[in-house]
Amino acid sequence: MEMKDLYREIVNEHNLYPSHKKDLADPTIVLQGVNPSCGDDINLQLLVENDTIADAAFNGSGCAISQASADMMIDLIIGKKTDDALRLAEQFMGMIKGTATRDEIEELEEAAALEDISHMPARVKCANLAWRTMKEEIEKLQKGE
């Protein structure tokens, strides 16, 4: 997809009218994800019950790609087991790296639209930020930190 179409069809909507940009009342874990070189900064909140992501939200600022990626990720992971969310994060980052299979990409639902970011090295960090942060949070929880 051409970059402008990607913005028009997917990114703008999630960036300008995000469904999950808010604060959770009682999150299990909150973590700040930062890309110091571009100033992307998100605060990702997860509510985890019985190893399932019961709810999630984010706040922060950054480019449209980083914000939209966070919003789409949360759409995908609410209701998923933490292990599944971890696997999806790996698949997303694999897609951006260009190593994911077709099936793995399809499982990412709307977030699969960001596949073309893999051709734009400068934007990779923006797309990955939320997923990297989510992975770190779940790993912390699983280690009991």
């Binding site: 051409e2 970059m3 402008k4 913005y7 571009c38 950054g62 480019c63 449209a64 790609i65 734009m120 400068a122 934007r123 923006c126």
Partner: peptide
């Protein structure tokens, strides 16, 4: 309302 990286990306196209 626009992040500079997005501005640069769309101008690149």
């Amino acid at each position: 309302g626009c992040h500079p990286h997005d501005v640069s990306s769309v101008l690149d196209t």
